[in-house]
């Protein structure tokens, strides 16, 4: 397990309704670990840990900044953030990157939906700082646009803003239809938003290697079918509908590494000895899923009625 970073809340910005921007500094005042643009930190909230994108450019940071949309019906992480006060301690794991800019790219097209602006803002800052060619399309609900002023100041006329779906969809298609061959596309937003962006890009011939996604939210998963998990020592665990494999393993006294419990962080990967997993996570690559030799036990289940795992 990585070393935890002790942080303290140094500023809170609640200007945009429903979105709270936290500025965090090291409790001992030191410079924080550098991070790759598009990185996130896992904050230890009450309940399951949550991952939040860092909005800075990542070079010699003295503060980390995250912007969190309050989700009243969520698992509790966003409500916890919205309950913090200046001076409160926060424990974070070091930044991790799953959404890095492709530095060889000749051009970087950034597409943000709603609070998905957070890792995109990090990319934008880095691109501006290092002189990479960049353009940004930012779609948000009127009155709910986070970081609008910063984006305008950083990007100038390289950023375009949309509050209605039709003009966004038209501009997106026109933009993606006319990019030089070395361009890369980066998108973050709600799952349906990113699906639409990927669909538009794919229809215009964009190959997967030029499309980069950062998932920040997990749609509610169905409770799933019951199945049995067979452990390495021969024990058979029942995993009823509505109970995750991770919960069943913990119930049996196994200590499984885990953080986010929502199929994002990659900690709870379990090796599959036999049986076919039903993959529902956002962590494993398409190839890794197709290999069917491991699964993320917090969200994924069994395709059949039995799964033999190496635990």
């Amino acid at each position: 397990m990585s070393d935890r970073i002790r942080l303290v809340v140094t500023a809170i910005d609640d200007d945009v309704p429903g979105i709270r921007t936290l500025t965090l500094a090291a409790a001992d005042g030191r410079v924080l670990p550098d991070f790759t643009p598009g990185s996130h930190v896992v904050l230890e909230c009450d309940g399951p840990a949550n991952a939040y994108s860092l909005t800075g450019d990542g070079t010699m940071p003295t503060t980390y900044s995250v912007s969190v949309l309050e989700v009243p019906a969520g698992a509790g992480g966003s409500r916890w953030v919205h309950g913090l006060a200046v001076g409160d301690p926060v424990i974070a794991l070091p930044p991790r990157s799953m959404f890095a800019p492709i530095l060889q790219g000749s051009r970087h097209v950034l597409v943000a939906g709603g609070i998905g602006i957070t890792p995109i803002l990090s990319h934008l800052r880095s691109a501006v700082r290092w002189g990479r060619e960049v353009e940004l399309l930012y779609a948000y609900r009127d009155g709910r646009g986070a970081h609008l002023d910063e984006v305008k100041e950083l990007a100038g006329d390289r950023a375009r803003f949309f509050t209605d779906r039709t003009s966004f969809a038209e501009s997106l298609a026109a933009t993606l239809a006319d990019q030089p061959i070395g361009a890369h596309l980066y998108t973050c937003g709600p799952a349906g938003f990113m699906d639409a962006v990927v669909e538009t890009a794919t229809a215009l011939g964009w190959p997967p290697s030029r499309i980069h996604l950062e998932h920040f939210g997990v749609e509610a998963l169905d409770p799933g079918e019951p199945f049995q998990a067979v452990l390495a020592d021969g024990r058979v665990l029942d995993v009823p509908s509505g109970v995750s494999l991770l919960e069943a393993l913990e119930g049996a006294g196994l200590d499984v590494p885990q953080l986010c419990r929502q199929g994002v962080c990659g900690e709870c990967r379990v090796t599959v000895r036999s049986g076919v997993p039903l993959h529902r996570d956002l962590f494993l690559s398409a190839e890794a899923k197709a290999a069917n030799d491991s699964l993320m036990c917090c969200v994924s289940r069994a395709e059949g009625d039995r799964l033999e795992i190496d635990l």
Partner: peptide
């Protein structure tokens, strides 16, 4: 060809 190619080219 590359000089004028747009993403989508193979």
């Amino acid at each position: 060809d590359l000089a004028t190619a747009r993403v989508g080219w193979r």
